[in-house]
Design a protein around this nucleic acid. Structure first.
Lengths: 233, 233
DNA sequence: CGCAAGTAACTGACGAGTCAGTTACTGTAG
DNA sequence: CTACAGTAACTGACTCGTCAGTTACTTGCG
């Protein structure tokens, strides 16, 4: 750190030191910004913090990103892209079975564990209204994609009338927030309760969600009448 | 507004006008602050906004609340208290049956509908790390209380060994974030999809959650092996 | 050299918190 | 029923720290 020629800048790679080429510096700054934003939240993070953490002046930071907002947007966008991709991959790999759920849950646990700052930034303190929006969008897109997958097989079933299908579609979309919410919530809970094993937490989430979805997939009609304790009141 | 003697300050009640007694003004300010914070979030809300919305000077606001933080803390505390009370009441009224779930879900939907700003403030843009903490606390407290309720009957069952009970306790605590997360998520989703009827959304949430809990309550052992659909594929 | 990478030191605006006063209500002595 | 003292509610115009964004300058690699 105090070294002028040789260095040990904690950075990766051999040639990594001051005076980086544009692109590499940009990457580093994004990485550092992600960490800072993730730990402090948008509002409590100052551009100086980011610059400082990257061992660079604020002015340089501004040569790469026009504004704090832009920097932040870029950071969150990358996270959202990454997470979306992973989740989509997980869902696509396991066509709608329990393993699909298991895969999604695993992706979330993996991500939260491997990238705590990113997770924090996106799921915990959503400091910025904007992030809220992007997140809602993420959830929405994932939700639609997932509902599609859930219904893919049923859609091809010629025994189902379009009306029946429509009912199922609607049901599937309603299930998404339930699934999604419980997954996120479980991961957050687990992070705060390290005494609980990850396996148990994962398994519980998978079971819980699967029970709900199973019914839908098995075609059972969950009418207002049946399927529920017969409404005393 | 321009009127000096008579007025129509948009406020409630007959004698309500400028120059209120201390206590009443304080109440009004809290109310206004809740609205402002709820709509803009902590950071984007300035003390001037609150003062302005209450048609009062900033200085006066500071005669009631020592700082922005204090004002905010008081606002959120009242919301958390209120919500906790309502949820506890709902759970207590319906001892752990489906109706218990139904009651909780209904409370959340009611609250979100009746107090959108409060809901927004606490559940959506949690602008402030602190709120995050308070909320986690709320969830934790509610969770424990709820798990206790779920298990109340089982605890008195002499047929269960302490070991079996302990397993159930643990299971119950794990279920709480799942339940809780899906409820909140569903309410938020519904708020953004007004085309879906509240009844359907509510019912779906109740069913989804009940399916998970039912298994636990009926004492079924959810081993790693069984309890999972044997994989159709 | 020449140009890109880099910086220290500055600016300007915004927003929390303060203060020196002003206004209106409440009694009570004449 | 004044009149006027006492006081609580209230305000406009300030201070002052903080922080996003700039400017004018330095450094070192090809």
């Amino acid at each position: 750190m105090t070294n002028t020629t040789g260095d040990t800048a904690g950075d990766a790679g051999p040639g990594a030191r001051r005076r980086m080429p544009h692109a590499r510096r940009r990457e580093q700054l994004l990485q550092v910004a992600l960490t800072e934003f993730g730990r402090r939240g948008y509002h409590s993070t100052q551009m100086e913090h980011v610059a400082g953490a990257a061992q660079v002046s604020k002015a340089l930071l501004y040569q790469h990103f026009a504004s704090k907002e832009e920097l932040f947007a870029e950071v969150t966008a990358s996270i959202v892209t990454e997470l979306t991709a992973r989740l989509n991959a997980a869902v696509l790999a396991e066509q709608g079975s329990v393993d699909g759920i298991r895969a999604m849950v695993r992706v979330l646990f993996d991500y939260a564990t491997a990238e705590p700052d990113a997770w924090n930034l996106v799921v915990r303190h959503l400091d910025k209204p904007e992030v809220g929006l992007e997140l809602r969008d993420l959830r929405e897109r994932l939700g639609v994609a997932f509902a599609d997958l859930l219904l893919r097989r049923r859609r091809r079933d010629p025994a189902l009338s379009p009306a029946e299908l429509a009912v199922n579609e609607h049901r599937a979309r309603l299930l998404v927030p339930l699934m999604y919410g419980s997954m996120l919530s479980m991961v957050s809970w687990w992070l705060e309760h390290p005494d609980t094993s990850r396996e148990k937490a994962e398994q519980m989430a998978v079971e819980f969600i699967w029970l709900g979805l199973d019914r839908l997939r098995s075609g059972e009609r969950l009418g207002k009448d049946s399927a529920m304790a017969p409404e005393p009141r």
